[in-house]
């Protein structure tokens, strides 16, 4: 019954944000009907748009999964953005240097590598939390920002492709990219990676001793310790998984769409991932619809700007509303839980 209630509340948040979209479009647009139609139905009018919507949801699935992998154990990873960006840069560098000879092998190696890089970055904050009691909320956020600037300076400096009109690295070797499902726009193999990761996490969280221990640590650290759970180790594992999935988000996006590192390509993946995770209430399977919803807002706004007279920034406004609502609700729940 409680689950039903939670589900209704989530549905309420989604409806409120869509109502907000309707209100904004109706006020701003000269021709609200066609703008609304483009916004709501656009992404479903043909396979191409639909495919692009799914493509957009892929990195969100990873970052959403990353956030909840930490969150179940009470590890609040605010460094997703930096982890996404930095790991994909490391993967790109490696791909540029070594990918020429063995492109098909590197299609598998690079996601794994970025998982390890993102995970390791996140583990720094985990370590600071365990050894020195420094809140990971602050440290992961700050480390993330440092990494973003570091990556940007590399892209603008030694890695910059002089021939490119935008700030980006040279292209990866031609075969070093995900195969793409032609009929569905940009949709690429990465979506299978995302589904698999989500399925694995779902099984781990619901069915494994490790998942049980992770949830226990998140809910009551004292009790976990008393029960013989090695709390520090679980926190580190959570931190690693959290950063790891975030790390994959960027690399999968690069291998699937950009084929090179473009400055700022991942803007907002990390933050939207938090909202996705909060909407899905840390149940991995729900991350799929939640990320598709976020991608829908994005594509819908693009449609409304192409076929109507809206600007694509509409999506940011609606996403912000969703973000406020879910975080407000989570914070409310957090304090309510505390008062007991």
């Amino acid at each position: 019954m409680r689950r039903g209630k939670e589900f209704l509340r989530t549905l309420g948040i989604i409806c409120l944000s869509l109502i907000f979209a309707i209100v904004v479009i109706s006020i701003v647009s000269e021709d609200p009907i066609s703008s609304l139609k483009a916004f709501f139905l656009g992404p479903f009018t043909n396979l191409y748009f639909f495919g692009n919507m799914l493509t957009l949801s892929i990195p969100l699935m990873f970052t959403g999964l990353g956030f909840s992998a930490g969150f179940v154990s009470g590890y609040f990873n605010l460094g997703l953005e930096g982890q996404v960006y930095f790991s994909s840069l490391v993967a790109t560098i490696l791909g540029l240097q070594l990918g020429e000879n063995n492109p098909y092998l590197f299609i598998l190696i690079l996601p794994v590598l970025s998982f390890v890089v993102g995970g390791s970055v996140s583990m720094i904050s985990g370590m600071l939390k365990i050894k020195h009691g420094i809140s990971e909320v602050i440290s992961s956020f700050l480390i993330g920002i440092i990494l973003i600037h570091l990556a940007n300076s590399l892209i603008e400096g030694p890695l910059l492709d002089e021939n490119s009109p935008i700030s980006a690295t040279p292209y990866l070797p031609k075969d070093l990219s995900f195969p793409n499902f032609e009929a569905f726009g940009n949709l690429h193999l990465g979506i299978l990676f995302a589904f698999c990761s989500i399925l694995i996490m779902d099984v781990v969280l619901r069915r494994s001793v490790l998942g049980y221990e992770m949830k226990l640590v998140g809910k009551n650290e004292l009790f976990s310790r008393y029960g013989g759970v090695k709390v520090e180790r679980i926190l580190m594992i959570s931190a690693f998984l959290s950063g790891g999935f975030a790390g994959m988000a960027g690399t999968v996006d690069i291998l699937g769409i950009h084929h090179r590192m473009v400055r700022g390509f991942s803007y907002g993946y990390g933050w939207n991932g938090i909202a996705v995770a909060l909407i899905s209430r840390n149940r991995p399977l729900f991350i799929i619809p939640a990320s598709i919803f976020f991608a829908f807002l994005e594509v819908g706004s693009q449609m409304a700007s192409i076929f109507g007279d809206m600007t694509p920034e509409l999506s940011k406004m609606i996403q912000a509303v969703v973000f406020y609502l879910v975080t407000a609700e989570s914070i409310f729940r957090f304090f309510k839980g505390r008062r007991r």
């Binding site: 049980y212 949830k215 226990l216 809910k219 009551n220 004292l222 009790f223 976990s224 008393y226 029960g227 013989g228 839980g337 007991r340």
Partner: peptide, 17 residues
């Protein structure tokens, strides 16, 4: 606080050891 986890389900409390 130590002997049980009130926010966890009953079975999660029972199988901990």
């Amino acid at each position: 606080r130590v002997g049980s986890c009130l926010d966890c389900s009953i079975w999660e409390n029972v199988v901990v050891n």
